[in-house]
Structure formats: structure tokens, C-alpha cells
Design a protein around this nucleic acid. Structure first.
Lengths: 115, 115
DNA sequence: TATTATACCTAGAGACACGAGGTATAAGGC
DNA sequence: GCCTTATACCTCGTGTCTCTAGGTATAATA
């Protein structure tokens, strides 16, 4: 669908945190996973994701670790794996609730009847 | 709830268009209506709304007209009433669908299970 | 050997929300 | 008459963030 930048904007951080909730991931992987999981609706740009990851790391929400890719996946290749930090989990909960409320608010207008 | 700016950002334009779909409104009114219709969840700032209205007008999505407030409402007061233009209705339809898809995509991740 | 995929990165441009300020009028309290 | 509050419009500067357009390096494939 190719969403407007302004829609993208509010969703990157909560999605990154939601992705890392279950297991560590590396940036390039997130791009592919988001693309796949949303059926191509969301298509992240690397120029957006990498700075975002750095900001989240600087803020203490996630941590990074260089490691070799598993031998059965991409032998000899280095990847930067990000994990969610405790502060990140708190933030995720906050963002989830924020999203829920926001969804309600927007739908109240967008789907709502007359004033 | 006091949403993050980044969440707000994507929603102002579609909401303005959705508000004007049914009848003309003036800026100050939109602020109050949005506040009321969302139960205070969304709280628009004038410094955000007025420039947005001007942008939408410049883009031909809405039109403006100065008029007296009705005598039984605020006699002697001038208001700037905005109406949705044909181009604005087309844009509204597009934005509505965009929002629907976006909602699906974000929820697919935010509520979704493992990768 | 050349191309594609993987995997990371950044600098600059452009867009836009918001805070903080401003103007002007009407209504209500004292 | 004066002061405050509500109505109703506006703009400028700051800061943040996405994206474009590049870049580097390695492995696999043609």
C-alpha cells in the first residue's frame, strides 16, 4: 500500500520493541520479517531502521551484540543482534496501551457518525 | 493519554477530512469536537491545526469562507468555515483505506505471535 | 569475473508537531 | 468602568524523524 511517512512514523519504535520481545534479531532480519508479517503492507527502509535502532540503544531500550551467524544459515557472516532491555519491556507495555487508545480515538472519528 | 507526536502526525489530515465530510466546520470547533468525540484521548493543539488547515486548503482539499456565527450561537462573531472539496473526498477515501490497511499491518505485529 | 544478496552504515534534505507567543472581540463578575 | 475568561484566528522557531542516495564489505551464484 505504501503508507504515508506520517503513519509510518509512530509505528516503528513500538514494532521494533514488539519484535524483540520474543527473541533477539538483527536489523536486516527485521526489515524482512516486518515485510513478510504484514503481507508487504509495511515496507521498512534501512535508512529509517538503523538510526532508529541506534536511538533505542542509546536510550537503553535495547542492547546490541555482534555475533557470527549460525553455521547452517550464513557461515562466516557477522550480524549485529539486538535484544530488548528491561526498560524496553516497560516501554513496550506503554506503547501497546498507547496504540490501543490511539486506535480507539482515531476510529471514533474515522468510523464515527455525525457530531 | 497524551499521545506521542509521531502517532498524532499521521492522523490529523484524515481526521480533518472525516470531520468535514458531513458539514462545514471552523477550526476552533474542530479542536473541541475532536476532544469530545475521543473522550479527551486526542487533544489537538491550535499551533498544529491551523497550519494543517492552510496546507489542506493550499492543496485544494478543502475550501474556506469567512462568515458570521449564527445569531443564536455567538452573535457578532466572525468564523472561518472550512468545507471539503471534491478532491478532499477522494483523498478521504484513500486515507480511510490506508488507515484500515495500516491498522491491520500494525496489529499483525503488535498483537501477533512468534515469527 | 560480474552480479546479486546479505548486512551494516551515514549525511543531508524536507516535512511537520508543538510551544510560545501574538491579535481581536464578546460575555460576565465586581 | 475594569478585569478576567472564553472565543477565534494566526505565525515563527525548534526539534525530531523519515527518506533518498549514497557508501563499505563479504558470500554465493551465474
Amino acid at each position: 500500500m505504501d503508507f504515508s511517512k506520517d503513519l509510518i512514523r509512530g509505528s516503528i519504535v513500538p514494532i521494533v520493541l514488539a519484535l524483540l520481545k520474543d527473541r533477539p534479531m538483527y536489523g536486516y532480519e527485521m526489515v524482512k520479517v516486518v515485510n513478510a508479517r504484514t503481507g508487504g503492507r509495511l515496507e521498512w527502509k534501512e535508512g529509517t531502521l538503523y538510526p532508529t535502532l541506534h536511538r533505542l540503544q542509546a536510550g537503553g531500550f535495547i542492547s546490541a551484540r555482534w555475533a557470527d551467524a549460525p553455521a547452517d544459515e550464513a557461515p562466516g557472516r557477522k550480524r549485529k543482534y539486538y535484544s530488548i532491555a528491561r526498560k524496553g519491556r516497560t516501554e513496550l507495555a506503554r506503547r501497546r496501551e498507547e496504540w490501543r487508545q490511539f486506535d480507539l480515538a482515531v476510529n471514533a472519528i474515522m468510523l464515527g457518525g455525525a457530531t
